[in-house]
Amino acid sequence: MRDSRLVSFVLLVGLLVTTAASACPNCETSQVVKASVLGEDFWRYLVMMVVPFLFIGAVSAYLYRIGLPR
């Protein structure tokens, strides 16, 4: 019972926050920002951002294997 009330509260707060954040989705500034973010460089920047994390994930997997029992 407490869990469901807590979940409902969290969802409501999330809804309010996102509503406030998108208070002006059609403003010129928002349109320009959206166009810039989702422009032709989007995938390039995304790949550049993800690569370090993928590399570290691979290192973590490797360390898991070399730490296996002998």
């Binding site: 973590s60 997997a61 360390l63 898991y64 294997r65 070399i66 730490g67 296996l68 029992p69 002998r70």
Partner: peptide, 9 residues
Amino acid sequence: PRHQGALIS
């Protein structure tokens, strides 16, 4: 057997 790797990763 000691599996240190699980904690390290």
